[in-house]
């Protein structure tokens, strides 16, 4: 066809973009599914979408994992109707902290540390980031820290389970032939 109008802006879509979008879609689907689950305490959630982030981190590196994680937070909150609500900023703070920890955790010697370690560390960072923002912004009182043992327990349990699931997924061969060349 060629370019009909000179003002058309073409954004080249790379294979990276397709891959990140696909994984982000999976993470968003898990976020939405999880939003339907009842929670005993606000803030205690399994965080299933982090399984996807862990898989992407192990397969494609930190940059892709960061894209998937942040797309998940933004698009997931849009779908749930939480965009720019307090819950969105808590999720964003948690995601940024856990990405920071994952950036360090990916340098752990792979001979001794697998996805479970990364997952547990990221889960603690996630809850830490949320609590810090909640303390600074929403509840300017040390009372939020009384709940720390409960949040830490949830982070340990769900972090371990998510890590096991991610390890299980990473052990299996890539399920479907990918339509685009991931190397480009």
């Amino acid at each position: 066809m060629g370019r009909m109008t000179p003002s058309t802006i073409e954004l080249p879509v790379t294979a990276d973009d397709y891959r990140i979008a696909r994984y982000a879609a999976a993470a968003i689907a898990l976020t939405v599914a999880e939003a339907a689950l009842p929670s005993p305490l606000p803030g205690i959630k399994p965080g299933l979408a982090n399984i996807i982030v862990l898989v992407v981190l192990a397969r494609y590196g930190w940059r892709d994992a960061a894209w998937v994680s942040l797309l998940r937070v933004v698009a997931g909150s849009l779908v749930i109707g939480q965009f720019l609500a307090p819950g969105f900023f808590l999720a964003l703070s948690g995601a940024l902290c856990s990405l920071g920890v994952l950036a360090l955790a990916q340098h752990l010697p792979p001979r001794f540390f697998g996805p479970v370690s990364a997952s547990v560390l990221a889960a603690f960072a996630h809850i830490g980031g949320q609590l810090l923002l909640a303390r600074v912004w929403l509840v300017p009182h040390d009372g939020v820290f009384y709940l720390l043992p409960l949040f830490a327990t949830a982070a340990l349990v769900f972090g371990a389970i998510n890590g096991l699931v991610a390890a299980r997924l990473l052990e299996a061969p890539v399920a479907a032939p990918v339509a685009v060349n991931p190397g480009s």
């Binding site: 540390f113 697998g114 996805p115 479970v116 547990v120 371990a160 096991l164 390890a167």
Partner: peptide
């Protein structure tokens, strides 16, 4: 699926 370091960290 758990390596020695994972056990230690847990």
């Amino acid at each position: 699926l758990l390596k020695s370091g994972d056990w230690l960290l847990l």
